[in-house]
Design a protein around this nucleic acid. Structure first.
Length: 333
DNA sequence: ATGTGCGCACTCA
DNA sequence: TGAGTGCGCACAT
């Protein structure tokens, strides 16, 4: 029940922020939801992750910061030509909407839906590009989701919340904002996380891959990341194994956005393209693996570790952060 | 203090 | 050149 509500709230909030020309970031989303509906930031954060997993919401690293998009609306540049993509997108949206009701709930239906979506994404992933990619994070997880029906089963756990989103994007809080809370964003909560993002931040991203991928679409995020892969466990693994490496570090669940920036800062390549999604997948390689095994365990530990790590590992960059120089954005993970 | 509206610059296809 | 995005500011509450 609430899930669907949250979905609406979150999507609505994202739309609202966008229409206001404000970056739909975690902090703003949580704040607005809290203001409007009184829901706790933590909860909002968790729900948001779920939506990301479901691909209802896309997490993207834009201009060095994480933004959330309404997947149903995202299309962005790439597509023009491809009708296909549009179509796909449309379909997706439709599905999403449809799924809104069920998916979130995790009804049986959703299994099917998911698949479809996945397929779409996969197949179309190329087309979708940005759109889909961003989801990747979600995608992967969603895969998991297959096993486990609902989108965010785990989320509820503290681990979860942080996991997806954060993981993806945020490696950990940069400023070390709160080591103590480390593990989950929870207490610090989204807001904190978000806040931290801002604070610390510098954008960056880890570019996993090669720019070329981007060529196709921004989504390229990287082949590694590619959502698609995620779909098949086996594939995932391969990919994961193959590329992963760096990313793994980056990820840290809870730290969430916060960390991300740091991470980004350090890593930054310039190659990235602007909107890139933030594929968690990479980040979460570990998780993924787990998944392949059976499902992911959300991994609780990581957070702390990550957090600390990241925190500890300061990069001068952070400050210097400017590294990013490039305006673009990068894909996050 | 917080939310909102919007001009403007940026980036990309 | 058109479109999407978000910063930064001014204004509203």
């Amino acid at each position: 029940m609430s899930e669907s509500k949250y979905r609406e709230w979150i999507l609505d909030t994202i739309d609202s922020l966008r229409s206001r020309k404000a970056r739909p970031d975690l902090e703003r989303i949580c704040r607005m939801v809290r203001r409007r509906h009184g829901s706790e930031p933590e909860r909002t954060c968790a729900e948001l992750e779920k939506l990301i997993q479901e691909q209802t919401v896309l997490k993207v690293n834009y201009k060095g910061s994480i933004s959330y998009r309404n997947a149903a609306k995202v299309q962005r540049r790439s597509r023009k030509k491809d009708d296909v993509s549009l179509a796909t997108a449309a379909r997706r949206s439709a599905m999403e909407e449809a799924s809104h009701s069920d998916l979130s709930n995790g009804d049986s239906a959703f299994g099917a839906v998911d698949q479809d979506e996945e397929d779409l994404e996969v197949d179309t992933s190329m087309a979708m590009d940005t759109d889909s990619n961003p989801d990747e994070e979600g995608a992967e997880e969603s895969r998991d989701g297959q096993d486990r029906p609902s989108p965010s089963p785990a989320c509820e756990d503290t681990t979860v919340q942080c996991a997806p989103v954060q993981a993806v994007s945020a490696p950990c809080s940069p400023s070390g904002s709160r080591p103590s809370s480390g593990p989950n964003c929870s207490s610090g909560s989204a807001l904190d996380c978000a806040a931290s993002q801002k604070a610390g931040e510098k954008p960056n991203s880890l570019p996993p891959s090669s720019p070329r991928a981007l060529t196709h679409n921004e989504l390229a995020y990287d082949s590694a990341v590619s959502p698609v892969e995620g779909q098949h466990p086996g594939m995932q693994r391969d990919k994961v194994e193959s590329k992963p490496v760096d990313h793994s570090r980056a990820t840290s669940p809870c730290a969430s956005t916060i960390g991300k920036k740091e991470a980004e800062s350090r890593v930054e390549d310039s190659s990235l393209s602007p909107d890139q999604l933030v594929p968690d997948s990479i980040a979460r390689l570990d998780e993924v693996r787990n998944v392949s095994d059976g499902r992911l365990l959300k991994v609780s530990l990581p957070p702390e570790n990550c957090t600390f790590k990241k925190i500890n590992t300061p990069f001068t960059a952070a400050e210097g952060g400017l590294l990013n120089g490039s305006a673009g954005d990068e894909v996050s993970s």
